[in-house]
């Protein structure tokens, strides 16, 4: 399915970085964005994210996500901006009646919050689009010592979402072919209406997970110590990236301490 965040093969610098470096990146973006109060600083973080997405050739896939985030931020800002009373009033929502005052501090804060949201929330899709899930898992188990079972659970759950949606479509189509009609005005029927969809979905999901469990078991899952064929060591680019990120984080901390 196309609506989901999935790995998009590529060979950009960012694609080739170690998954750990990229995970550290998402955390440093978060730390820096929440340490600084300066909208311009957060904006530059966001621009860097966009540049990374552009070099990774995933701008097109990022577009719907960014648009969604933007809509969300706008709504959030509109809800919030009228409740901030500090600062000087710069405009009114209804100027004729001098109703709904908006202050300069209010605007600044909403812009800051929106930018923080955009910057931090866009890192995760960029991470997932430039890194195969299996690499993230391997890196997490090998480097961060996360128990393999948990990391695998995570992968399977993530992989399951698109196939679940496909399955849902199949079920929907099969029932529609039997005259099933999902739009009804009757509220009682509205509740009953999901049963023909939910039950087959549940059953096929259980079948699938059982099959998966068996197929993993026959291939020796859980039989003892694991080995790993992928090389997940860090390269020079990783160290450079980590040093850069660390300096930004430290600068952010320093700036926060001074003010």
């Amino acid at each position: 399915m196309s609506a989901f965040v999935e790995y998009i093969p590529g060979n950009s610098i960012f694609h080739r970085l170690n998954p750990i470096t990229k995970i550290l990146w998402t955390f440093s973006v978060m730390i820096v964005c929440f340490l600084t109060e300066n909208p311009l600083a957060v904006l530059s973080v966001f621009i860097v994210n966009l540049v990374i997405a552009a070099t990774g050739n995933i701008i097109r896939q990022m577009y719907p996500i960014l648009r969604g985030l933007l809509v969300f931020c706008t709504i959030l800002s509109l809800c919030q901006v009228f409740f901030i009373k500090e600062g000087t009033v710069v405009l009114y929502a209804l100027p004729w009646f001098r109703l709904g005052p908006v202050t300069d501090r209010g605007i600044r804060l909403c812009v800051l919050i929106s930018l923080r949201m955009l910057s931090t929330a866009s890192t995760v899709p960029i991470l997932l689009m430039t890194t195969p899930m299996s690499d993230i898992i391997t890196a997490m188990t090998e480097k961060l010592r996360l128990p393999y079972k948990y990391s695998l659970m995570l992968t399977i759950a993530l992989k399951f979402i698109p196939s679940f949606i496909d399955e849902m479509n199949q079920v929907m189509q099969a029932q529609m072919s039997r005259g099933y009609n999902s739009d009804t005005k009757n509220p009682f029927r509205k509740f009953l209406i999901i049963i023909p969809l939910a039950i087959p979905l549940l059953i096929t999901s259980i079948q699938k997970s059982r099959l998966l469990a068996i197929s993993m078991e026959v291939r020796g899952f859980g039989s003892g110590k694991r080995s790993c064929y992928k090389d997940c060591s860090m390269g020079n680019a990783d160290y450079i990236a980590i040093i850069i990120m660390a300096s930004f984080v430290l600068a952010g901390i320093a700036a926060a301490l001074i003010t």
């Binding site: 099969a174 072919s177 005259g179």
Partner: peptide
């Protein structure tokens, strides 16, 4: 025309019966 209406004229058997049995 809605599928649920066409269902009176066209019967459709899917590959996997488990997608419809509930």
């Amino acid at each position: 025309t809605k599928t649920s209406r066409l269902a009176k004229y066209v019967g459709f058997l899917f590959q996997n019966p488990d997608h419809q049995i509930f």
